[in-house]
Amino acid sequence: MRALLEGLRPAGRPARLLFVHAHPDDETLTTGVALAHHARAGDDVHVLTCTLGEEGEVIPPALAHLEGDRPALAAHRRRELAAAMAVLGVTSHVLGEDHPGDGFRDSGMAGSQAARHPRAWAGVPLGVAAEAVGAVVADLRPDAVVTYDPHGGYGHPDHVRTHEAARSALVVVAPGTPLLATLTPRSWAEEDRTWLAEHVPAGEGWVVPGEESAYAGDVVPDEVVTRGVVDPAVVPLQESALHAHATQVLVGRGWYALSNRHVFRLAGREGYARLDPATGRPAPEDET
């Protein structure tokens, strides 16, 4: 497995990376290790968030009043995002932030009424979404762009649209810029399942993926995952950033849980693969 930027890093200067995500907290949950690792290495790391997650479920009872109050929840989650990005040492961008009327909304889970909103991220024309992402790409001119796999990790419509918009943006405004997607080798997922079963408190309703539930769609055969970031030393930073996302995440000792009580390990490692922006399929690594 290659390092994330092996063969892609520019000579003579720090790399500039752009991570494109759908909602606040996605960046820390799925790419927090890479964000912290590359920021600590001196690279110029940016996160683009496409919506403010207005449809998110709120976990803490003290913040329950925010659920259903979409403007209030969006504002609160924006503050959470800013706090998490400060912990990780990266620069945050939100679509439409400079021109709020041009922003996009959380579409909710598949089939939800929120998807009918005219500015719902998953429902706007792909050309509109790609143009918005492309404007950020054109401004930053990153050396590589990182986002979800074609299935959005676990199929959330906003994650799928984020993948599509990032791909389309690169084709139009930055052809040749490497596109990388988050993926998990099956062997890692199985190791994590074993670890979680041994370390997460029993009898409290926690759900270990692969037991009551199947693995997420981004768990793939090991050979598909050709790049990775392995840095257990940044896990404390990732945990601290997750604590900032208090509306959405519960943090345990070496693990975290979402509102559905599904638990995931904070293992200090993340898998990636290079994709062809034109097709979304894996790009042969011998081309790098």
Results as ranks from 00 to 15, higher is better:
Met1Pro: 15
Ala3Thr: 10
Ala3Leu: 13
Leu4Met: 08
Leu4Ala: 09
Leu5Asp: 06
Glu6Gln: 10
Gly7Val: 05
Gly7Ile: 04
Leu8Thr: 10
Arg9Met: 04
Ala11Thr: 15
Pro14Leu: 06
Arg16Ala: 11
Leu17Asn: 09
Leu17Lys: 06
Leu18His: 02
His23Ser: 01
His23Glu: 04
Asp26Val: 13
Glu27Arg: 06
Gly32Asp: 02
Gly32Pro: 01
Val33Lys: 00
Ala36Ile: 07
Ala39Pro: 01
Ala39Tyr: 05
Ala39Phe: 00
Leu48Ser: 10
Thr49Arg: 03
Gly53Ala: 07
Glu55Ser: 04
Glu57Pro: 03
Glu57Phe: 03
Val58Asp: 09
His65Arg: 14
Glu67Tyr: 03
Arg70Pro: 00
Ala72Phe: 10
Ala72Val: 07
Leu73Met: 02
Arg77Asn: 09
Arg79Trp: 12
Glu80Gly: 02
Ala84Arg: 05
Val87Gln: 02
Leu88Val: 12
Leu88Ser: 07
Val90Glu: 02
Val90Ile: 08
Asp98Leu: 11
His99Lys: 00
Gly108Met: 02
Ala110Phe: 13
Gly111Met: 11
Ser112Thr: 15
Ala114Val: 00
Ala115Gln: 15
Ala115Ile: 05
Arg116Pro: 04
Pro118Cys: 02
Ala120Lys: 08
Ala120Met: 09
Ala122Tyr: 03
Ala122Phe: 00
Gly123Met: 10
Pro125Lys: 10
Leu126Asn: 05
Gly127Arg: 08
Val128Leu: 13
Ala130Asn: 02
Ala135Pro: 07
Val137Lys: 14
Arg141Asn: 09
Val145Phe: 09
Thr147Gly: 03
Asp149Arg: 01
His151Trp: 10
His156Phe: 03
Pro157Thr: 12
Asp158Asn: 01
Asp158Cys: 01
His159Ser: 14
Arg167Met: 15
Arg167Pro: 11
Ser168Asn: 05
Pro178Asn: 07
Leu179Asn: 07
Leu180Ala: 09
Thr184Glu: 08
Thr184Cys: 09
Ser187Leu: 04
Glu190Gly: 12
Trp195Gly: 12
Leu196Met: 14
Pro201Ser: 13
Pro201Ile: 11
Gly203Met: 06
Val207Ala: 06
Glu212Gln: 14
Asp218Gly: 01
Val220Ser: 11
Pro221Tyr: 08
Pro221Ser: 00
Pro221Gln: 06
Thr226Phe: 05
Thr226Glu: 02
Thr226Ala: 06
Thr226Trp: 01
Gly228Phe: 02
Asp231Gly: 08
Ala233Arg: 12
Leu237Pro: 02
Gln238Met: 11
Ser240Phe: 01
His243Met: 15
Ala244Ile: 13
Ala244Tyr: 12
His245Gln: 14
His245Cys: 15
Ala246Gly: 00
Leu250Asn: 11
Gly252Gln: 14
Gly254Ser: 07
Ser259Thr: 03
Asn260Leu: 05
Arg261Glu: 02
His262Arg: 12
Val263Asp: 10
Val263Trp: 04
Phe264Tyr: 13
Leu266Arg: 14
Glu270Ala: 14
Ala278Leu: 11
Ala283Leu: 15
Glu285Ser: 10
Glu285Ala: 14
Thr288Arg: 15
